[in-house]
Structure formats: structure tokens, C-alpha cells
Design a protein around this nucleic acid. Structure first.
Lengths: 333, 333
DNA sequence: GGGCGAATTGCAACCGGTTCCTAAACCGGT
DNA sequence: ACCGGTTTAGGAACCGGTTGCAATTCGCCC
């Protein structure tokens, strides 16, 4: 059933090497042989085996795309962009779903077994140790949406979460809010910690401000709703909240409306991510957008560079955020 | 850097075949050699190359997962379930994003090059010709979310869209709606056509009913919003609408609220899919759920069966729908 | 027509496993 | 100690490509 190099060679009346070379860009083949081979290949419907060529060249054109985030709608867009970017470069994504119950070591082992050219870890919640382990196992790796650190072990592409916190704080202050809440994601997440740090930093520069801190148990709608319910039940609210994610903000928004509070009339809300639903008429959430397309383009570019040139120095790329103003904060002053 | 069979063999003082056999379940190896080999393998950190073994056995444990739907949030859950189901069976998903500008033939060629064990097409909007072409190219294929037809060319797993239409109609009728609207997805989509057919069928059994038909240009929030705006502008609305998808329904809902119409007070709305946002407090959309988990479990099961036993007769599996009652239809009578 | 360097070509070894086949080791029984 | 029947082990060919190397062919000039 499958047509091999040998079949084409016989049909074209040339050696196997000649066939191989016609399909290897930059190899030395005369125009005559090339056309004979191409014709034979076309007639037979020949497609070179990526497995075999991967085996002998050591490059498989496979990119391991690892994520543990299959709940936040923003990641559908992330996967869309990643798969396209990877495909456009002539590579293919081998997807790894690293959910709670899967063993990270097993995942690394399997990425090695398939000898992927590089690994892209796409997650802000996955421990940096995972990427580091990939690297230790000899896999070129880049961590997209990873945390910026002083001395990163692997290349990181993402945003500056501390700056994100500052940016949110500035947005709230500029709109005259003074009694301000932080409604973060899980308290243990580094994204939460970093954003909180920036948030505090900026508020600290405005003496008259009050800051209250609270955390949703996960990055999810329901956790956001639950935490806002708790806040409502436990006394007067802040004037505005910076939420750790749009889904959290939307959960909070739903609860506020249900409780008869006007947003932004009574309470202001600003989210993070600019997921599609943030722009829905039912939502119109003011939020901070991270440049997904750029993060992904850079990540893929680096992954490829790294696979070709493994000893490239480790870099860190932090891309700029944008405030997207919609309807959940009162107008600026 | 990479440890091979040979290295392990030398270290263990046995032949390469012996090593291969210890890693091949069911092969004949004495306990003594096995333990020698296992120890040597562990010491060296040996992981057998999936490429090489795929090359010689003809099975790669790779499943091509093809989709063109990277916009509808429901598909994030689809990908989550698929990747887990595939991984749990010891296989890995090779993801193919078949968006508008990618060539389906190229995709098939590449799936052949990597000699995937089977292909799963996950899309309700992709032409059945694609799956048929896979099959013609010798790739075992199953079409998840595909259309039920009289004589399917490839195995299909999904739902009965005609029945979905009937179900929606029955739900509306049972709640006393008589002037009823169909707000489908793209008029050309088979899902739209089938659901409309079922919808008409059921309404036809109730003489006093009026049916109005309209279509959103795509399966998206904005298209739903746009179409509902048009309806509002062009005269009195129906009492309730069956929308082709939750995102369309949510778009419509947003426009209705903005126009000051109460839902379900003035207008009823029922969606399709039960995406996560349908359950948000801001939305509480009554909708019809398709059993994603079952569809996916069956699809993966069939794909594997097919890869092991290519001549299995072509079957069609249609799974049952569930009405999820929330807050956008008035209570039943 | 002969000679020269450059471009092509084919051979053969190799990538890392799998598996058929034969030979060797093993077993219990006499 | 010997025999016949099982296991088990190793050799070698094969999966489908790639590539270094030596041999051949080519184009061109004298």
C-alpha cells in the first residue's frame, strides 16, 4: 500500500539516493533526473516517510506543545494561534495535555521518544520545574506565558505580571477609586503574587488609598462568583476590584448584578486577559489584554531557533499590555 | 546523548534482540535477562525511540486530530476531552488546525507521512469529503460531530440534528409559545438544515403555529447579535427563538436586553450546546446539551478499533441530547 | 580528440528498533 | 549421564529514509 523510495527509484530508473536527493532541498541532482523522479513520484503518489527521515536526520519537525490549561476559553485562541504558527513554519504540533492526573515525567519521556525538535510549554500555572526538566532531558524548550525571573533556566515569553498589577492600579486610581479591592486568582499562583506585588506597589504611592485583598480558589467563573458572594456577605464592598482573570471578573459581575449592585455605578470591576466574552454585550468588561499573537509568534520563533542552535543563550521576552476600556469602570477624571 | 538499544545491550551483556524483547510485552525473555536489561536501561535512562519502532512495526501510536473549529469555546472542552482520552489509551494526538487557508490535501499528505494510526476529524462544519479523502488515502478515520447520512462513507459519531430540531420545537410548544422563530447558524451548514428540518416537522404537527426562519452568517456571538438586531429593526419579534448555537443565542440575548426586551418575559430563547458560559449568572441560558464526553469516548474507541482492524464495517453512532432548563424560556405549562 | 575540474551518480553504511529463524541452554524424566 | 521437548538467545535481514565517499559523467577549452 505505501509507496517507498525504492518504488520510485525503480520506476524512474535511478538509484534510491537520487530520489532522496530530489526531495532534499539543496542537494545535487541534475534537472533531468529530478524531473524523471518527480514524474515517477507523482504517478505513484509518493510521500516520503517523516518517520524514516526523522530517524536518520535526527529532526522530526515535531513540536511538543504542552499545556495544562484546558478550561480557560482564552486558551482556545492560544491553541489556534500556536497550531497555525507551527504549521505555517512546516512543523506539526504534538499536543500534550498535562492535567492534574498525568505524570510530568512520563510526558517528558514520551516527548523524548518521539524526538520532538522542541517543546513549547504554554501555561502560566505550570511549575517552571517542568520546563527545566525538559531542558535537563536534552529537549530544547521555551516557556510561553511563563514567569519572569531574575535568572531564568529556560527562555520565557510572556508578560510582566508585576507591571500588570501596576497598570490595573493606575487605571483604578485615574478613575478616582480610592477604596480598592484585589480579587486575585489562587493565592499560591505566581501570577497572583506578582500582580498583587505590582498592585500594592502602585497603591503605596497614593497615601490615601485603602487596599483589600482576597483570592478566588481557582481561575474560574464559579470561584470568582463564590468569592464575590463571600465579600458581599461579609460587609461593605470596596469601590472597585481588580480581578485576576476575566472569568473571575465575570463571575463576580454576575453575583453583583444579582445582588442588585450596579456596575460600574456601585462597584467598579477590571479584569485580565480580554477573552472574547469580555466584549459581549452582556458583559462589556473593562480589562487588560495580553498580546497573545505576539507571545505566540515569539515563542514559536524561539523554539525553532533553539532546535537549530541549541546553545543559544537563555532570553526572556516580556511583551506590552494594553488597557481595554469597556463598561465596568466609571469614566476617567 | 541519546541512549540506544545497543548501549543497553552492551551494558547488560546481552544481544540487542534481548533488549528489544524486554520492552515488547508478551515476548519471550527469561527473568534473568529481563532484570539485567531493566537495570542497565534504568542506569542509562533509556527510552526506546518511538520513531524507530514505528518504522519497523508500522504503528506509531499517533492519532491525527483534525479540526477547523478554533473559535467556539465548546471546542476547548472538546480538545481537552480528546487529548485526555487519547493519552489515557497510550496514544498521542497530532493536532491539525484545518483553518480556511490551509490545504486539506496537504494535511492528508502529512498525516500519511507521519503514518498516524488513525485520524479523528472533529468538526460539524468540515465537509464529509475530507474524511472520505482520508479513508481513500488509506487512513483509518472517524468523523466526530459529523452528519448522519443514509449511507455514510466513514464512521460518524455525533448527534441527530433533526431530532435536535424536534426537541427544541417540543420544548417551545410545551411552554405555550405559538409564534416561533428559528435563528439558525449559516443557512448553508448541514447542521442548520437538519435542525431546521426537524424543527419544521414538529411545528407542522401543531396547526396553529407560526414559524419564522432566519440565519446568522456564522456560528458566532457577533453574527447572532447582528441577526437579532436586524429582526428587531424589521418588525415585531416572534415569541421565542431556537438559536443554532449558544454563542448565537448569547449574542441575541445581549441585543434583546440592550433593546429593553425582557427575556424570557417578552421573548424566549433556547440555545444549543450548553457551553460553559450558558450557565453563567449573567446568561442562564436554556439550551440543549450534546453529550461531548460520550461522543469523544466513542470516537476514540472506534478510531483505535479501526486502526487495529481496518475492515470493520462503517457504523454511525448518534447519542442522546438533553434539555438543560435555565432561565431564558418561560416555565412549562 | 584529449584533458581537466566540477557536477552527478550509485554504493554502502547508518539511524534505532523489530522479528524470523536457527542454535544453544534448559527442564524433568529415565 | 542421556534424551526429547521447551524456552530463550543471538544473528541477520528489514522498516524507509540520509549521506559520505568514490566513481562516473559532463561541459568546456585547447
Amino acid at each position: 500500500m505505501t509507496v517507498t523510495l525504492k518504488d520510485v527509484a525503480e520506476r524512474a530508473g535511478v538509484s534510491r539516493s537520487a530520489v532522496s536527493r530530489t526531495f532534499t532541498p539543496g542537494a545535487s541532482v541534475s534537472a533531468k533526473t529530478r524531473s524523471k523522479v518527480e514524474q515517477a513520484a507523482a504517478e505513484l503518489g509518493y510521500a516520503p516517510s517523516a518517520l524514516a527521515s526523522g530517524l536518520s536526520t535526527g529532526r522530526t519537525k515535531l513540536i511538543g506543545l504542552v499545556s495544562n490549561n484546558f478550561r480557560n476559553p482564552i486558551f482556545l485562541e492560544v491553541f489556534d494561534l500556536f497550531t497555525r504558527a507551527i504549521q505555517d513554519r512546516g512543523l506539526r504540533p504534538l499536543l500534550v495535555n498535562l492535567s492534574e492526573d498525568t505524570d510530568p515525567e512520563a510526558a517528558i519521556r514520551m516527548l523524548r521518544q518521539y524526538s520532538v525538535d522542541a517543546v513549547i510549554v504554554a501555561s502560566s500555572t505550570l511549575s517552571p520545574a517542568f520546563a527545566a526538566n525538559c531542558k535537563a532531558a536534552g529537549l530544547p524548550v521555551v516557556h510561553a506565558f511563563g514567569r519572569a525571573t531574575r535568572r531564568p533556566e529556560v527562555p520565557v515569553v510572556g508578560i510582566d505580571n508585576v507591571e500588570a498589577g501596576r497598570m490595573a492600579a493606575r487605571a483604578l486610581l485615574a478613575r478616582g477609586y480610592r477604596d480598592i479591592g484585589f480579587l486575585g486568582g489562587p493565592a499560591g499562583a505566581t501570577t497572583t503574587q506578582d500582580r498583587l506585588a505590582g498592585f500594592r506597589q502602585e497603591l503605596a504611592r497614593h497615601p490615601g488609598c485603602r487596599l483589600r485583598e482576597s483570592f478566588a480558589s481557582t481561575y474560574s467563573h464559579d470561584a470568582g462568583a463564590a468569592e464575590m458572594s463571600r465579600l458581599i456577605d461579609s460587609g461593605p464592598l470596596a469601590e472597585a476590584y481588580f480581578c485576576g482573570d476575566d472569568v473571575i471578573a465575570i463571575g463576580a459581575l454576575g453575583v453583583l448584578r444579582k445582588a442588585g449592585r450596579e456596575v460600574p455605578g456601585d462597584v467598579g470591576l477590571i479584569g485580565f486577559n480580554d477573552m472574547e466574552a469580555a466584549s459581549w454585550d452582556l458583559v462589556t468588561l473593562t480589562t487588560i489584554r495580553q498580546p497573545l499573537d505576539e507571545i505566540i509568534a515569539v515563542s514559536v520563533g524561539q523554539a525553532i531557533a533553539l532546535s537549530e542552535q541549541p546553545e543559544t543563550p537563555v532570553t526572556q521576552t516580556l511583551l506590552p499590555l494594553t488597557l481595554i476600556e469597556r463598561g465596568t469602570l466609571r469614566p476617567g477624571m
